[in-house]
C-alpha cells in the first residue's frame, strides 16, 4: 500500500491535532480543576423526594464559612427554588464570593439545570442527583433554563440565581410571630417574632414591624443555627386608627436585603374592639388592606408561618 508523501504529512498533522485536543481537555480537567457531573451521588426514588435529606429541605444551606449547598427540584415546568418570574417559587439567592454546590433532581421527566451564559449546566435525570460546584465572584443575576425538552410547557421553564454582595446576604427567616388576636383600641400591646438564623455564624438581624401606618425597627443578635426573639411594644393610641376595626401587621427580617424571601416575612391581623363600626370604615379598610399586602405572602390570617 503506497500512501503519497503529502498524505503522510497530513496523517501526522491529523494525529497531532487529535492528541492536542485530548491534551487541552486533560489540561482543563487537571490544571483548571474542571470536573464532570458524575455518579458520586446515590440514586433517589423520584416519587419520594420529600423523604430525602436534601430534597425534603429545598433551598440554600450554608456548609462552611464561604460554602453553600443549594437543593433544587426541577419539575414540569419549574425550578424550586429558582422559578420566581411568576412568583411561583423564590429565586435562588447566594452570596458573592461563595463556593456553591447545586444538588438537582427531578420527580418526573428529564430536565436540565443550566445557568445561562456560564459553564454551569447539567442534565437532570429522575432517579439521579446532579451535583455541580462553582464559585460565584461577581454580584449579578443569572437566568436558569431547562434546555432539555420536558413536555408541552418546556419553553416556560426558567429560573433566576441572584448573587448578592456578602453584606446583603443572610439566612434569616421569620419562624413565628406571637401576636394577640384582638385588643381594645388605644391599648398597649406586644408582638414577639422568633427569628431563625440558618447561617453557621452569629449574625445581627434588623427586624421590622409594620403595623397600621407605623414602622418599628429592632436589632437582634441570633446565634448560628439558632433562634432569637424580637419583641415590639406598640401603643395603639399612637397609631392613626381612623375608626378601623382591625389592624394589619407584617414582620420582616432584613427588609432591605435581596436575600429576604418568602419565609422572611409574616403578616397577620389584630381585631380592634371599638365602640362603633360603620360601612365607610369597612371600605377604607379594604383599600388599605390591598396596599399593605406583601405580594409574596398569602398567609395573612395567622402569625404562625410554619
Amino acid at each position: 500500500m503506497n500512501i503519497h508523501s503529502y498524505e503522510k504529512v497530513w496523517l501526522i498533522a491529523a494525529m497531532l491535532l487529535i492528541v492536542g485536543f485530548i491534551a487541552t481537555i486533560t489540561y482543563g480537567s487537571v490544571a483548571l480543576g474542571i470536573t464532570m457531573v458524575d455518579d458520586s451521588e446515590e440514586t433517589i426514588d423520584p416519587n419520594a423526594l420529600e423523604e430525602h435529606e436534601r430534597f425534603g429541605d429545598l433551598g440554600v444551606h450554608q456548609t462552611d464559612s464561604d460554602e453553600y449547598d443549594v437543593h433544587v427540584r426541577a419539575y414540569q415546568f419549574n425550578f424550586e427554588p429558582g422559578s420566581s418570574a411568576l412568583g411561583t417559587h423564590d429565586p435562588i439567592v447566594i452570596p458573592q464570593g461563595s463556593e456553591v454546590t447545586f444538588y438537582v433532581t427531578s420527580p418526573d421527566v428529564i430536565h436540565s439545570f443550566s445557568l445561562v451564559g456560564t459553564n454551569v449546566n447539567t442534565m437532570v435525570v429522575p432517579g439521579e442527583i446532579s451535583t455541580m460546584t462553582a464559585e460565584f465572584d461577581e454580584a449579578r443575576e443569572y437566568g436558569v433554563v431547562c434546555n432539555e425538552y420536558c413536555g408541552s410547557g418546556h419553553h416556560g421553564m426558567e429560573g433566576l440565581v441572584k448573587v448578592v454582595p456578602e453584606d446583603e446576604f443572610h439566612l434569616f427567616s421569620v419562624a413565628d410571630v406571637d401576636a394577640p388576636e384582638s385588643i381594645e383600641a388605644g391599648e398597649e400591646t406586644e408582638l414577639t417574632a422568633t427569628i431563625d438564623n440558618d447561617a453557621l455564624q452569629t449574625e445581627a438581624a434588623t427586624v421590622t414591624l409594620e403595623i397600621g401606618d407605623e414602622q418599628f425597627d429592632t436589632d437582634v443578635e441570633v446565634d448560628a443555627e439558632a433562634s432569637a426573639e424580637a419583641t415590639f411594644t406598640v401603643d395603639t393610641s399612637d397609631l392613626d386608627l381612623e375608626d378601623a376595626d382591625d389592624l394589619d401587621w407584617t414582620v420582616t427580617v432584613e427588609a432591605d436585603s435581596p436575600a429576604t424571601l418568602e419565609d422572611g416575612s409574616t403578616s397577620g391581623t389584630i381585631d380592634l374592639e371599638t365602640d362603633e363600626d360603620d360601612e365607610e370604615a369597612d371600605d377604607e379598610d379594604d383599600e388599605a388592606d390591598d396596599e399593605d399586602d406583601d405580594p409574596n405572602d398569602d398567609d395573612e390570617s395567622t402569625g404562625d408561618d410554619e
Binding site: 503529502y6 498524505e7 497530513w10 496523517l11 491529523a14 494525529m15 491535532l17 487529535i18 485536543f21 485530548i22 481537555i25 480537567s29 470536573t35 464532570m36 457531573v37 458524575d38 455518579d39 451521588e41 440514586t43 436540565s112 449546566n121 447539567t122 442534565m123 437532570v124 435525570v125 432517579g127 439521579e128 442527583i129 446532579s130 451535583t131
Partner: peptide, 29 residues
C-alpha cells in the same frame, strides 16, 4: 453532562471520539 455516569467513562468515550476524527480528516485529503 449526565449524572449517574462516572467521569472516567466519559473520558474514555472522548478519547475514542477524538480518534474517530481521523477517518474524516483522511477523507478530506
Amino acid at each position: 453532562l449526565d449524572p449517574g455516569i462516572a467521569e472516567g467513562f466519559k473520558f474514555i468515550a472522548m478519547t475514542n471520539t477524538m480518534f474517530l476524527l481521523l477517518p474524516s480528516l483522511l477523507t478530506a485529503f
